[in-house]
């Protein structure tokens, strides 16, 4: 299964992850705003969460809806995903403190799963046994310069 853009990285999977993460973030932000409005006791710094959520949602969905838009494809996607992870990582720490990993995890997992079903990603070729037997490795993979890249 040699593809032209073979890089072993299934960008769709990562994209799903990002989208669901963004939606999760938005939900949490909304939840915390509501909570603060009604109870006034939320500790979440929700403004960065909303901004990241909206930004990344926009970017991911745009990339998904208009896949041929060159400015939204790799390597931008990768850089953005890294940046996005970096910011959300910081937020993640705050979130886990307040809401707890488990609650967020379950919400996130559900969204992740639903998103994947909506995007019909649940048919990962590798794991669905479509990719078995010896796979030829494209020459590109063996370029020593590849080790300067994260993937």
């Amino acid at each position: 299964m040699e593809k032209e853009n073979y890089s072993r990285l299934n960008k769709k999977t990562l994209r799903t992850f990002c989208i669901s993460f963004s939606i999760g973030m938005l939900l949490i932000a909304i939840f915390s705003i509501l909570r603060q409005m009604f109870k006034g006791d939320s500790q979440i710094n929700f403004i960065p969460a909303i901004i990241t959520g909206i930004l990344s949602c926009y970017h991911q969905i745009a990339a998904w809806v208009v896949p041929d838009n060159p400015s939204l494809r790799k390597p931008h996607f990768a850089i953005f995903a890294m940046l996005f992870f970096y910011i959300t990582n910081a937020i993640w720490k705050i979130v886990t403190l307040i809401i707890g990993t488990v609650v967020f995890g379950i919400i996130f997992y559900l969204i992740f799963t639903i998103t994947s079903v909506v995007l019909k990603l649940n048919k990962k070729d590798h794991i669905k046994n479509k990719i078995t037997g010896w796979q030829k490795v494209p020459e590109k993979i063996n370029l020593p310069e590849q080790c300067r890249k994260l993937f």
Partner: peptide, 28 residues
């Protein structure tokens, strides 16, 4: 690491919703 992460996410997608316990342990 990112390629490995890709594999792990794909694995969870494949088995969802059964892998939730492991997911909650691994993803954080």
């Amino acid at each position: 690491p990112i390629l490995k992460f890709d594999r792990i996410l794909a694995s969870y997608l494949h088995t969802a919703p059964l892998g939730i316990r492991s997911f909650l342990k691994a993803i954080p």
